[in-house]
């Protein structure tokens, strides 16, 4: 008879196989939802980290199965959310129940609201890319299998679902920088500061910052280092 560990591993492998067979983000959304249902999870949310260039959740969401009504409420509180904060500070995956929820008023409201939407419990997986936190993956539901073995299976599913999402995205992607953004990114890659670039290109420093922020949104990254890496990966710029 298969051990419980073996059983959980097989569930994870089957889920990864199903996930990697999907050819569109919509189908991937459905496959993820089904895969995590085994452990009681009802919803998932894959998001880029919050940044100055991309503060709003609607811009940062990659894959999501949240109810619309909850999403609208959550967007307002996201910056105070202990789960969102944990992705920044944690080097490992975590149960939401292990987090220290500070008792501020907005968080209490959110707690009650999340209860209404069956999102009180969950599991978070920080996804670290080449040089920074690349995304946060959250799975949630009202009644979860929170054993270590279930959590490990869910961790693998989250990591491989994210990887498959990035593969789909790369395959679908068209050139994503404007000529001006591309020229600025080349200077950023050459180590120039915003001030340097403003002088080189005879524009204001404010214009440089705005153009680069737009380029970073198009590249779906949050730091300039990531922007250089992503622009190189997409062959938008070359060394």
């Amino acid at each position: 008879m298969a051990s419980s560990k073996g059983k959980h591993f097989q569930i994870a492998l089957d889920a990864i196989e199903r996930i990697e067979a999907q050819r569109s983000a919509d189908d991937l959304n459905t496959a993820v939802k089904h895969s995590i249902a085994t452990f009681g999870y009802q919803n998932h949310c894959f998001v880029l980290p919050r940044s100055l260039a991309m503060p709003a959740l609607r811009e940062r969401k990659l894959l999501m199965s949240w109810p619309q009504a909850w999403f609208r409420q959550y967007d307002r509180w996201a910056k105070d959310d202990a789960v969102a904060t944990a992705f920044r500070s944690r080097r490992s995956s975590f149960r939401w129940s292990d987090l220290d929820i500070r008792a501020t008023a907005s968080l209490r409201v959110m707690e009650m609201a999340s209860d209404d939407f069956d999102m009180k419990k969950g599991f978070g997986i920080p996804i670290f890319g080449l040089d920074a936190l690349e995304a946060g993956v959250s799975f949630s539901g009202p009644d979860l299998d929170e054993t270590d073995e279930a959590n490990f299976a869910v961790e693998l599913i989250g990591i491989y679902a994210f990887n498959h999402y990035t593969k789909l995205r790369t395959a679908e992607r068209k050139p994503s920088l404007t000529p001006r953004q591309r020229e600025m990114m080349k200077w950023v890659a050459a180590g120039k500061t915003a001030w340097d670039i403003s002088v080189i290109m005879s524009v204001s420093q404010d214009t440089v910052n705005k153009t680069l922020a737009a380029a970073m949104r198009n590249l779906e990254v949050v730091t300039r280092a990531q922007a250089i890496a992503e622009a190189l990966r997409r062959r938008e710029i070359e060394f």
């Binding site: 994870a12 670290f128 080449l130 490990f152 693998l156 994210f162």
Partner: peptide, 16 residues
Amino acid sequence: TLRIPAMQAAGLSIRP
């Protein structure tokens, strides 16, 4: 386990 995404991002194909 959390090192896997970086290795995938680098270009490696890696399976548990």
